[in-house]
């Protein structure tokens, strides 16, 4: 009985390592042809439209509401200590350092990456990738790389848009609704948010998330089983794996970036 358990464990470890090796080789293949996006910019622009522009609405609305909720909850706590003016810095720091990059990456995984996986998976299932390959056009360069690069470029932009919308939401609730002093709100924020430490590190985070989410979505799509079931389970895997990787990476990055500061 124990032996069977060990055997199953060993098999699953082998399978996982196999898949990781496959993913590593595939990622290298994608990254090495990603330069096509510079030569044929229109390919990248098209994918940025589908992943970036089409995520704009959900990102900005979510950002606005997250900022508004943060303002309400933050005010509740801060006013007990008589420091309601710190609301601006509380909201801005949470958004810029954590919520902006993380939540937009999670939303992006659900909104754009799942669609990319399904699209590539279906193209594989209907032999479109094979047809392209037979026409001497490398599908990795023509189809996969632009979709990956679109995630890398779009996600940081979406993250700053999310954070900005959040700050505006907090301003609306905190200043316009609750009545915190306008000047104190902004000046407290400016005093505590450092452009290089907070904003740039947040941006670096979202670039890393973009690489992770982008690679996962194209990998799962490219290696989906060529059936309806295969594509749908690949799409689910994209969302689950992307979300988990974003959260784990966020922890690792946060520890290495901000540990020395506080």
């Amino acid at each position: 009985m124990l032996l069977i358990g060990l055997e199953a464990l060993g098999a699953s470890i082998t399978r996982t390592l196999d898949r990781l090796g496959l993913a590593a080789r595939f990622s290298w293949g994608v990254v090495s042809v990603a330069g096509i996006c510079l030569v044929r910019f229109s390919l990248l622009v098209r994918e940025m439209y589908f992943s970036g522009v089409k995520s704009l609405a959900i990102i900005s609305v979510s950002g606005l509401f997250v900022g508004m909720v943060l303002a309400v909850q933050g005010y509740e706590v801060l006013q007990r200590f008589g420091s309601a003016e710190s609301l601006g810095s509380l909201v801005a720091l949470s958004l810029v350092r954590e919520l902006g990059p993380v939540v937009s990456a999670l939303l992006f995984a659900g909104r754009a990456s799942s669609a990319v996986t399904a699209e590539i998976g279906l193209m594989r299932a209907t032999e479109q990738l094979a047809a392209m390959d037979m026409m001497a056009v490398n599908p990795l360069a023509r189809i996969v790389a632009p979709r990956f690069m679109a995630a890398v470029v779009s996600l940081p932009l979406l993250a700053v848009i999310f954070s900005s919308a959040g700050v505006l939401g907090a301003y609306l609730v905190g200043v316009q609704l609750i009545g915190i002093d306008d000047g104190a709100f902004w000046s407290q924020m400016q005093a505590s948010v450092d452009f290089r430490v907070d904003v740039l590190n947040g941006l670096i985070k979202s670039v890393v998330f973009g690489v992770a989410v982008g690679l996962i979505s194209v990998f799962e799509g490219y290696h989906a089983a060529p059936t309806a079931e295969g594509v749908s389970s690949a799409t689910t895997r994209t969302v689950v794996t992307s979300s988990l990787s974003v959260l784990v990476l966020d922890f690792v990055l946060t520890v290495s970036m901000f540990r020395g500061l506080s």
Binding site: L122, M123, E127, Q128, A130, A131, M134
Partner: peptide
């Protein structure tokens, strides 16, 4: 280079949708 001289018709056409 070789494939540029080859043409292939796939089972269901494999048109780019």
């Amino acid at each position: 280079g070789l494939r540029r001289q080859l043409g292939m018709l796939f089972q269901f056409g494999a048109l780019f949708t």
